[in-house]
Design a protein around this nucleic acid. Structure first.
Lengths: 345, 345
DNA sequence: GCGCCTTGTGTGACCGGTCACATTCATGCG
DNA sequence: CGCATGAATGTGACCGGTCACACAAGGCGC
């Protein structure tokens, strides 16, 4: 309406109050839907709000009420598929609940750096979601001071990370178990494992599922190959494994690693799936379009993010029902990269 | 120090003041580094701060001072490589300047939805960075009310999107130009183009660079194939192009599209680069590990994000020097997917 | 000795909301 | 008819900082 060239200070509830001829408290009642406001009064206030383009100041609201309707997501990474999808799920749910979403990247797993980042997140005032799939995340989750509303997105339900704090998970253990069984069922003697960083600890869910499947089948358990997150790490691991002719099946900690492994096998002249079968983890969007397309396990990261937010939302507002630990069931997706072992073996 | 079971209200400057035996204003001076505070006093205050574990309340600071040391990033997507990398760059720079980073996803390009999201970003109080690579982003940038500190990350410097507002860009036009010239220089008669959503408009930078290279070489200009962002879109486009035997070179709007195109060519039995050459855009981490590895143009998205923040930072605090429009130079990366056209042509 | 400027410190108001309580007026009920 | 009750509204303090200004003490010039 009012088009002066200058940027004017936005209208406050007191401005609205004078415009409507009521007290600021009445305005507050109207915007909060308090019942005992005479309809005619409400009408007038709403008109004034409309006319002045009033919007409730989020900062003042947070300061006065203590609640800030905000979530900060702490994560070691924003670009990898799994992380980015979880973040997206959180944002989606947060937006629906009109919460603001902040992010903090844990660039280093060093304690001081992690603590600093946790502090920053705590300063933001709202709730915190920590993606604790890796060392930095796990430490961050542990470093969140007690009493702060926090939810962890973790690898496995078997090891409660922060003791009493709520968490959500996709069942990586089950997923790794399924993928490994799939490969074994094709006739492979055993399955080698290329691990993402956190998954080397004995307690890791992905490693655990793989190990369990091997044990149940009475298959020998090769040493997992420690790797990084990206295709470069997978490539290096793949070159190593390719040298060993007994290797006929490889499970990778994520699809990016699998991509690197595929490339390494290609470079060393070992056809997939003719000689070696490869399975990934996560079902990233590109996996279906690789050549050969990648057998993998699909995890619902977006849903995981939504659940994390729902849980946090429940903690922040007692009114909101706390979701019962929602575990999304992983789904094996069989594609071209897995098949029976070569006949000669 | 003080370990009571209950979560106590954090210390305020007044708590510190009484503990140090000074007024709250003196505490404020100390935490702001004001010069005229007697060293001995400063000492006492710092000791009290330390002892009470005082941290300045960000919300109160924002309310009182007006500045909120926060950036909100508006983007249509958080999972695609380019977007995620820009976000990461922004976060990195923001963290270094101890700014909080918020994100808002533009789920729909519909005007009302975009406007709502812009409002939310504005409500957050700080600066705004809009990633305007696509219709939703472009609209969001246009919808930001004048007077708000905002920086756009845009496709091309040729079309100032918001008129007077600052923006940064990676030179997509130049990148597309380089990639197209590379393919032409290999001997291809022309280069087909599979476009990402925004790039179909005539003003688009990527399309423009491609077109310019064709024109300069006197090559015929085929109709660009409109596609989506992901590999599925590239796959569909690739199937279409594969039917045309005259197609020997394809430039894709991003590496994910290229991946889909590669797959489509594989499925239709057209060897790459034997019969068809393919080039991508962005140099995503996986592109080097595809089979065939992908010729592409590398863009420094992270650097772009950092620049965007630097620019915004300059706007928010006059003290900070405003970076001169920093354009990162794209770099052509030649890999296996491009080569000379088949001899018979 | 006086005025004046500078240094160090304190006081009150304010940012824009919420919250606890006070006040007014119309009802219902004994 | 008097009084308790509840609806409708207003007042003052408060959240935790900042800002503008006041004020005391000390040094300097004249």
């Amino acid at each position: 309406m009012n088009v002066t060239g200058h940027t004017r200070r936005p209208a406050s509830i007191r401005d609205v109050a004078t415009a409507a001829g009521v007290s600021y408290q009445t305005v507050s009642r109207v915007i909060n839907g308090h019942p005992s406001v005479r309809p005619s009064t409400r009408e007038r206030v709403l008109a004034a709000i409309e006319e002045l383009g009033f919007r409730r100041n989020a900062t003042a609201l947070a300061l006065a009420s203590g609640r800030s309707r905000a979530v900060t997501v702490l994560t070691a990474n924003t670009t990898h598929y799994g992380y980015a999808s979880i973040l997206q799920g959180i944002e989606e749910a947060a937006r629906a609940a009109s919460y603001a979403v902040g992010i903090g990247v844990l660039e280093s797993a060093e304690d001081a750096a992690v603590a600093a980042e946790v502090q920053r997140a705590a300063d933001a005032g709202g709730g915190i979601v920590v993606i604790a799939y890796d060392p930095a995340g796990v430490r961050a989750l542990a470093a969140v001071p007690a009493g702060l509303p926090v939810v962890g997105v973790v690898e496995t339900p078997a090891t409660p990370p922060g003791g009493d704090r709520p968490w959500v998970w996709a069942d990586d253990r089950e997923a790794a178990y399924q993928a490994t069984r799939h490969l074994l069922s094709l006739g492979h003697e055993t399955v080698h494992y290329v691990a993402i960083p956190s998954s080397t600890r004995r307690t890791s869910a992905r490693t655990g599922g793989w190990r369990q499947a091997l044990k149940e089948a009475g298959a020998p358990e090769p040493r997992p190959v420690q790797s990084s997150w990206g295709p470069a790490g997978g490539h290096a691991a793949g070159l190593k494994l390719a040298r060993d002719p007994s290797v006929t099946a490889i499970l990778c900690g994520n699809d990016d690693l699998a991509l690197g492994v595929l490339r390494a096998l290609h470079e060393t002249g070992r056809p997939v799936p003719g000689e070696v079968s490869v399975a990934g983890f996560d079902d990233a969007p590109h996996s279906a379009f690789l050549t050969p397309s990648l057998t993998t396990v699909r995890l619902d990261f977006t849903g995981l993010g939504r659940s994390a937010f729902a849980l946090l939302h429940g903690v922040l507002e007692e009114s909101a029902p706390v979701a019962p630990h929602p575990v999304s069931v992983p789904e094996l997706v069989v594609r071209e990269s897995s098949g029976p072992p070569p006949a000669g073996t």
